[in-house]
Design a protein around this nucleic acid. Structure first.
Lengths: 233, 233
DNA sequence: GTCTATATTGTGATAGAC
DNA sequence: GTCTATCACAATATAGAC
C-alpha cells in the first residue's frame, strides 16, 4: 500500500495580498495565529491523542479544512503547539541556573519565575508531562532544539556551574553537601509538581479554584526559606 | 438519533465451569486477569485516549472481541485500569500521614514507600497526572472511592493530624512554622516529580536508564536529611 | 483564503459460529 | 469462552467551487 506522502504543499509563503477590493470578511491576516492559539487551548486540555481537529476549528472560528491548509496534518499542528508550549519556561530556567549569580539568588529567581508563569498557565506541566510520558523520545529532540546543544552538553554546563558554587559553599561551611542534580530536581519538583498534580491536590486538600490560588501564593512566600533552610550545613 | 445503550450484558457471573472434557487450549481461567494486566501496560504508556483495544488484545494474546466480552467497552476497561493504578499508592500514603507516628517517622516512611514503589512502576505518576489533567473531575470521585470519605473530610483529617504535630514541634522550638498543606505537598513533590518528569529529566541531565536508577537511589539517601533540615527552626 | 462536500481510513463494538 | 467476520461511525484528510 502506498502512503501518499511526497513532501507536498508546504506552508503558504505570501499571504499578505490585501488589495482593498473585497468586502466579504476581513481576510483575517492572523488566521494562522488564531488557529495556533485555539489548538494550544484544545491540545493543552485534551492532550494530542484526545484532541479533535473539529473542536480546534470550532474554537478558532473556522472550518476544519483550513487547519489542513495551514498545518497540513494533525501531527504537524500538534508538533507546533508542543514546541511553543515547551519553550515557554525551560530555556529561561536553564539560563538562570547556568548564569553566574549566586546560589541563593538562583533559588529565588527560579521560584519566582516558575510560580508566576505557571499561575497564568496552570495546565502547562500536566500537558508536557502527559506528552512526554506517552512519547518519551521527544524529550531528547526537544532539549536539543531549545538549547542548540545535545542533552549531555546541557547537563554538563548547567551542572558544572552549579557544582562549582555548591563546592565553594560547602568548603566555606555555609551549606551541606548536595549533588547538583539533586539540587536542580528538588527545586523544580517543589515549584512544578503542585501544578502538575493540581486536580489531585485540590481533591485531596478539599480546595476549590480560588483556594488553590491562595495555596500557591502562600507557597511563593514559604518556598524560598524552606529550600534555603534545607541547604544549610 | 438513538444511542443504542440500554444497560446490556453485564460482566459474566460464573466462569468457573471447568468440566475436564475439552482439551483445546487450557480455558485460561485467568483470562480476565491477563487482559487487565495487558490493558494496564498499554494504558500506562499511551494514555486512555491514545490506547488501542487492538494493541491490548494482542498484548494479552487474545482477540479484541474478548475484551468486550469481559469489559463491555473501552471506557469501562480504562476505568478498571485507572482505579487499580490509583489505588496502588495513594491510600497507603494517606494512612501514613494520618497515623500517629511522629513527624520524622512520617517523612521517612513516605519517602521510603514512594521511592520503592515508584522504582518498580515508574510510569505511574505520568499516567495519573495525564489522566487527571485531561479529565479533572475524576479526581474528586477517585478520592471519595479510595478513602470512603468526601475530599473535604479527608483533607480535614490528614491535615488536622499533621497540624497538631507541627504546632507541638514549633512550640517546642524543634521546627519552624509550616502549614500542613505545604508540608504534604513538599513531601509528595520531592518524591513523585522525578518520576513524573522522568523523560525530561533524563534528557536534561544526560542520563540513561541505569543512570536514572542510580539517581533515584542517591535520592533515597539524600531526601530525608534534606527535608528534615528544611523543617528545623 | 475560506468554504462545502466527499473520500478514506481507523477503531470501537456486535453477531454468530464453534 | 473464544474466535472470525462485519458493522457503524468517528475523525483525518483531500478535491474543488467560490
Amino acid at each position: 500500500m502506498i502512503k501518499s506522502n511526497g513532501q507536498a504543499r508546504k506552508r503558504p509563503a505570501a499571504r499578505v495580498t490585501v488589495r482593498p477590493g473585497r468586502p466579504k470578511r476581513p481576510p483575517a491576516a492572523d488566521t494562522e495565529q488564531r488557529i495556533l492559539e485555539a489548538a494550544h487551548g484544545v491540545f493543552m486540555q485534551r492532550g494530542t491523542a484526545g484532541a479533535r481537529m473539529q473542536e480546534i476549528a470550532a474554537a478558532a472560528g473556522v472550518n476544519s479544512a483550513l487547519l489542513h491548509y495551514y498545518f497540513r496534518s494533525k501531527a504537524r499542528l500538534s508538533e507546533a503547539v508542543f514546541r511553543r508550549a515547551a519553550s515557554q519556561l525551560l530555556p529561561a530556567v536553564i539560563r538562570i541556573l547556568a548564569s553566574d549569580i549566586d546560589l541563593t539568588a538562583k533559588v529565588h529567581a527560579v521560584i519566582d519565575l516558575e510560580l508566576t508563569h505557571l499561575s497564568q498557565a496552570p495546565y502547562l506541566p500536566g500537558y508536557l508531562i502527559s506528552e512526554l510520558t506517552h512519547d518519551p523520545d521527544r524529550a531528547r529532540h526537544l532539549v536539543t532544539e531549545l538549547t542548540g546543544l545535545v542533552p549531555e552538553e546541557v547537563g554538563r554546563r548547567v551542572l558544572g556551574s552549579l557544582r562549582a558554587q555548591i563546592d565553594a559553599a560547602v568548603r566555606a561551611r555555609r551549606m551541606s553537601p548536595l549533588e547538583p542534580e539533586q539540587f536542580v530536581v528538588n527545586l523544580l519538583s517543589l515549584c512544578i509538581f503542585p501544578f502538575a498534580a493540581r486536580p489531585m491536590l485540590m481533591a485531596l486538600l478539599g480546595a476549590d479554584q480560588p483556594g488553590f490560588e491562595r495555596f500557591i501564593e502562600h507557597r511563593r512566600a514559604d518556598l524560598p526559606s524552606f529550600i534555603l533552610r534545607a541547604m544549610r550545613p
